[in-house]
Design a protein around this nucleic acid. Sequence first.
DNA 1: CATGAATGAGAGTTCATTCAT
DNA 2: GATGAATGAACTCTCATTCAT
Lengths: 194, 194, 194, 194
Amino acid sequence: MGNKSVQKRQYILEKAKGVFAKKGFKDVTMQDIIDACQISRGGLYLYFESTKEIFLEVLKLESEEADDTFSKALTEECTGADILALFLKEQKKEILNKEGDLTIAIYEFFFANKVPAKENPVRVQFKSAVKIIEKLIKDGVESGEFICENPLGAARNIMYVLEGLKVCARTMGITEENVNKEIFYIMEGLVSDS
Amino acid sequence: MGNKSVQKRQYILEKAKGVFAKKGFKDVTMQDIIDACQISRGGLYLYFESTKEIFLEVLKLESEEADDTFSKALTEECTGADILALFLKEQKKEILNKEGDLTIAIYEFFFANKVPAKENPVRVQFKSAVKIIEKLIKDGVESGEFICENPLGAARNIMYVLEGLKVCARTMGITEENVNKEIFYIMEGLVSDS
Amino acid sequence: MGNKSVQKRQYILEKAKGVFAKKGFKDVTMQDIIDACQISRGGLYLYFESTKEIFLEVLKLESEEADDTFSKALTEECTGADILALFLKEQKKEILNKEGDLTIAIYEFFFANKVPAKENPVRVQFKSAVKIIEKLIKDGVESGEFICENPLGAARNIMYVLEGLKVCARTMGITEENVNKEIFYIMEGLVSDS
Amino acid sequence: MGNKSVQKRQYILEKAKGVFAKKGFKDVTMQDIIDACQISRGGLYLYFESTKEIFLEVLKLESEEADDTFSKALTEECTGADILALFLKEQKKEILNKEGDLTIAIYEFFFANKVPAKENPVRVQFKSAVKIIEKLIKDGVESGEFICENPLGAARNIMYVLEGLKVCARTMGITEENVNKEIFYIMEGLVSDS
DNA sequence: CATGAATGAGAGTTCATTCAT
DNA sequence: GATGAATGAACTCTCATTCAT
């Protein structure tokens, strides 16, 4: 149902995003969102009927924004290596930004909610990132910046490392230096090959 | 507290482990553990006062067992490459074994409970694994099986990839083939270097 | 209040009647009636301020219609026995028609809402039915169709039996045969007297 | 589960019975029963999980008690006519006792909860009452106190009249005189037959 | 007149935690 | 030591009722 005021809906989703960023998924109650939005119980239920529904909507918004950011980056005049470096820098921020992004909430949610592969936004985003990185590496190889015999394998390796860093940052703690080292290791592997 | 019967304590921890493996951390209630152990409410509280405490004790047991397994493997007469392959095979099993190990519980727990680095068992285990892999690679290089200029970097890379695979397996689903490809990519990087 | 559009008022009452027939009285919410009428919340409150008020209005309409039906039957050229048989046949239908009439709603309503005897529509209808049946029996006696020393008593007995059948049909279930037997027992008592 | 203290269970059922007698079935909340019992929320849920379950248990108790009363009456040395008169007197009390018995609650409950015929306690009790009345009439006929060609029909007629009286008493109000008249009409039909 | 978003009281349910036995 | 009944805070969800537009 294309219910109620669109602005309020957006407003709720924004506030809810903040809550999920702060508390993950499982600990978030409708009450938390009510408090964050300063609205009434019934008011919230008018728009959404569970934290699950709200979370999925938040994710939808997020992925749209992410797509925009990515497209913008790609349209700018840069070499593959530049863009990859930029991408990794962004990822570094995300990896280290322990409170304030949805990573933990996403993990918690998808641990508990099995979603068919094709509709799984995490998977979709992962796969599209792999593809883009592969493309960037290929560009870099063509322009002579990179040396790489298996761009797809390298792209996947990069994505899994980033995912590993993200989860380690949130379970065991990680320093910026740790991340730098990994990124350096990755770039090194692409630049020289000996 | 050197409390009560040690056997019962162990018994509770074993049963609790099964519960955590099945339900993660956050969804586990004291009642779940009571049911699994077939003991009384008060009986459980006599030994532990929260799921958190129980979980940490379960982890302690786990890491001791893990250490044992590792040591045993290392004492056997094998080349570095063999042991690494064996290790990766074990990891593969763990990555794909989506239900029945503590991975999700561990993630959920450490997302929510920040533990000082040195006492953080996940971190401790991660670091020790890195060290061992580094050693194995060095051995492999010495024996001519591997070519690697930066064994520590490679070891860390491997561990982050494995962590990435583990978390991806539980959030977006992963096939055995996916894991095989990643492991192959890693081994390939160690064997050939061109 | 000679409020607003009379048509809309009637329209709401008709739709509401359907809702009460389906759900009884207590389970009906203003939302149910809103949905049935496809009008707005505020729109409904403009005409009625509670399900109670709506229900009483629905009953008023009903009893008017019932009176009409009865009068029509009485004006037709029939013997008392014929009309009584016709009346009982109608009652049989009502007794067995478990979903789709207001019986349950009426019971639920008047269980909870004590209404002064003279204004109580159920009572009014009951008493008028008794009077009519009494008249029919007297007619039947006069014409030699019936034998009955106490027409008023018989009329009351008939009405209580019918009421008993109605309530039993809705609490314990009743077959058509059960009803037939009772009606037969009643008619038998009027026809023969031995 | 043969849970917890039997006394407390009985205690709750007794108090709950009072609540149902006072408020019917649908209006009774768990809170009402909590208040009546002066126990905690969780305490109540320890024994019962819904008003429906509680109500069914209350009914069970009731029917056991009713059976006892009946048996006792039957074992006493009385003629059929005496016992029938006694039974009708009891029924009169029940019919007029508008607040304080479960009649309304029973109606409300079974309007909304269709129960398989054989398990339906209302039906069971109704049928057994019919049988007993039939027996009493037969006894009366044998001893010459009654004249009746169709004891079963008469018994059913009596039960439906009583049911009708009960429901009318609760929807439209009924005086003791009304009930007396009906009982007199019934007894009259059994004694004389002209 | 009419709309429907917004409110908040209140019902249902679950669980960590305590404590008398 | 061990038991499990009892407590009450916290959550989810629903609805009658109001009110700005």
